Simulated assay, not measured.
Amino acid sequence: MSENNISWFHCGRCGSLFQSPIGNTDDRTCTECGRNPSLSLEAPPARQAAPGVPDAVPPQGGSGRSSERGRHTVRKRRSSYFMFGLLAGWGLLVGLIIVGARLLWPEGRDGAQTGHRQAAASHQSTEAEITELNEAAPICTGVLSGFLNAGTPEERNQFVLDPITTAARMARFYELNPIVNIDPATIANTGGTLLALPGRRAIETQWEGADNLRLDAVFIEKNGEWRLDWDHFARYSDYPWALFLTGSGPSEGEFRLLARERLAKERKNENTVSVVLYAPRFGHSGESGSQSPEFLIRRDTRDGKLLDAAFALQRNGGRPFGVKLKSNNPDGFIRLRVKVRRVEQDGVRRFELEKVVACHWYSTDEPGVEITETPAEK
């Protein structure tokens, strides 16, 4: 049978399209449901369609199962059209809202672009920091090894920051404080990070050795060379804190000390902050030495604001200048550079906190924490 004698027909009973020879309609059966495609045997023969073109004649009349199926198909199509129209309308509404928002607040789009640029810059800076640390690490290790291996202050002086001005302080310091001999081969670097000191490139490192030895060393770049921040490394003070407390030495000095807030929760609503100062132990940063009497500092003064900010930063796990390394301090302690005066009057000795220079031990007078100062406080 040739293709010219085959045509497409529509079944009025099941709604399917099927191919069948052109001829007597009484003998034609639907290939899907197996029944006569006409809804009535008396119905006129189906209109012949051109070869390859479906018969588009709709069902005529009828009842029962096939009629119900036809009505279900119509309802399904209407439901689909309704859902499509609803989704299209909702999409159009959302699009108009977005376009309107961008027209009204163009900075939102610019802010998003700025955010992407900042994220990319942050990623690049992180890679740059890693590269800088990797390049500087062996140099800093060599500087620390050279300093520890040096036998005299004069030899050590060539490895420190500002050697000319540091030499006199170093000689005086080691007259009053013992020189701790450390074999650099016995210590290992346990961490390092870039340190954002104002106007200087700096790196902070941490080291551990036998007998619970713990050190932290800061290296500052100057004139293209990395140098040890000796004042920070030695915990330099004008005079040994323990002797100062007993009445020995000058009546006033600057000290690098540890500080602890007394009764922080109980006194949080008081107008003064209670602080006790302790001497640090070189090589054992997790421990503290001689302690002072209590200092009461008004919270509305510059010193009180600095102390409040530094202790709040410590409680939140932060460190001055945003340093990422975990602190080696004893729990609940912060580092301070302070000026303290000793007063002897009528056989009574007392101490006054003259000034909080900084909330760290680095060789910079920047406080390291942010506060709001009044013109009088500055």
Rank of each mutant, 00 (worst) to 15 (best):
F219V: 01
T186L: 05
I203L: 06
I179P: 05
E221A: 10
Q206L: 09
L194V: 08
A167W: 00
A217Q: 04
W207L: 04
M170L: 08
T193D: 11
A210R: 13
P198H: 04
I187P: 01
E175C: 04
P178Q: 08
D162A: 08
R169T: 09
I179L: 15
L195Q: 04
D162I: 01
R200W: 06
E221G: 02
Q206Y: 06
T186F: 00
R214N: 14
K222W: 08
P163F: 01
E208T: 13
W207D: 07
P198M: 04
E204W: 12
A202N: 08
A202H: 07
I220Y: 03
G199Q: 12
A210Q: 13
V218K: 03
I203T: 01
P163L: 02
E208F: 11
R201L: 13
I187T: 03
R214T: 15
V180G: 00
N212Y: 05
D216Y: 15
D211H: 13
T186C: 04
I164P: 11
T165L: 13
P198Y: 02
A168D: 10
L195W: 01
D183M: 06
P178L: 06
T193Y: 03
N189D: 09
I182K: 04
T190W: 13
P163D: 05
V218G: 09
W207A: 10
I179K: 09
A202C: 09
Y174E: 12
W207Y: 09
T190A: 07
I182H: 07
N189T: 08
P178T: 10
D216H: 15
R200C: 08
A171E: 11
A217G: 02
Q206W: 06
E175I: 11
P184D: 04
L176D: 05
P198E: 05
R201P: 00
I220W: 00
I179G: 06
A196K: 15
L197I: 11
L195P: 04
A196L: 11
V160N: 00
L195R: 04
V218C: 13
D162H: 11
L195S: 07
T186W: 00
E221S: 09
A217W: 02
G192F: 11
G199N: 13
R214V: 15
N212S: 14
I182P: 01
A185M: 09
T165R: 15
A217S: 12
A210L: 07
D183A: 05
I164Y: 10
A185E: 05
E175W: 15
T186D: 10
P198T: 07
D211M: 12
T166Q: 10
L213A: 05
T205I: 00
V218D: 08
D183Q: 03
T166M: 14
R201I: 02
A202Q: 10
N177S: 09
E208S: 08
V180F: 12
A196S: 13
E204S: 03
L161G: 00
G199I: 07
Q206C: 08
D216K: 15
D183K: 03
A196Q: 14
A171I: 10
N177A: 06
